[in-house]
Amino acid sequence: MIVEGKLSARVAEIELLNPTLKRFRFVPEGGGTFPTSPPGAHVLVTLRDTDRVWQNAYSLVTPPDQRDHYAIIVRRVVESRGGSHFLHDMLKAGDAVELGVPASLFPIASRARKHILISGGIGVTPFLSYLPVLALRGANYELHQFCAGDEVETFRDLLGTDAAGVHVHSAGLGARPDLAALLADQPLGTHVYTCGPEGLMDAVEETARGLGWTPHAIHRESFGGAKGGEPFVVTLARSGRSIEVGASQTLLEALEGAGIEAPCLCRGGACGVCLLPVVEGLPDHRDHVLSDAEKSEGRLIATCVSRARSETLVLDF
């Protein structure tokens, strides 16, 4: 069941973990508790600047039964669409924020007999809520975190230096993780989960497939994958409104920027909530929801990540 609605919250604490990483703790407005979140859950954080609104999805790094507060960890990225700069530079303790109800599109496989978690950089965040659950279940698991050499200490601290089954690897420039060594010779019923840069996730998927793993045993977290492209114009058939989608903006953001309440949940092309019917124009599909056949039909588009190949796109909305 997906609980609808928004949670009113307040920033309780902002902690600098290293020069580009900050942890934000949110508490419920007016006290009380938040809903229990599933492991691997993310929340949509609505950020309001004077002239812009962002809705960004971030993984909760608090354990599922932590209900007095939620926490997220955000990296300040140089090539930001604005959200991480706002969080890092503008948001202060005591500020009000609006959170979506936690949703998980990255659950722990219930039948798995062993879990291998592979993350790159800040992609480790969903696993921070996995670890206490796996430990509590007495599950067989290992976590491999790949990061730049100067961040090894930060991630060791986050993951717990002495935690069994947790390995932080320094992956400097040009040094590729030996995924085949991690995935080879695993017992039947092993599942792999990966979150991080697309290149790492692709490599994990490819390596596992090469070792005879089926898609059922391979899980990837795919939000935050929206990339820019050529600008285009979207026309909404029902209202006749035309909206420009900029090069660094997603289609969904352009709709939201024009004050249109378009459906969305994960904002990463994974859940399918944002799909809208296409009347005219050629979609440039970048989601993980539509099948190849549906993509070539071009009758639906995931507005959170996909764009247009044509100069204009007409949607039945």
């Binding site: 039948r111 798995a112 062993k114 017992p187 039947l188 019923g189 092993t190 089926t214 059922h216």
Partner: peptide
């Protein structure tokens, strides 16, 4: 029970 999934 041995951990195999329906795709296998």
């Amino acid at each position: 029970r041995a951990g195999m999934n329906k795709q296998e």
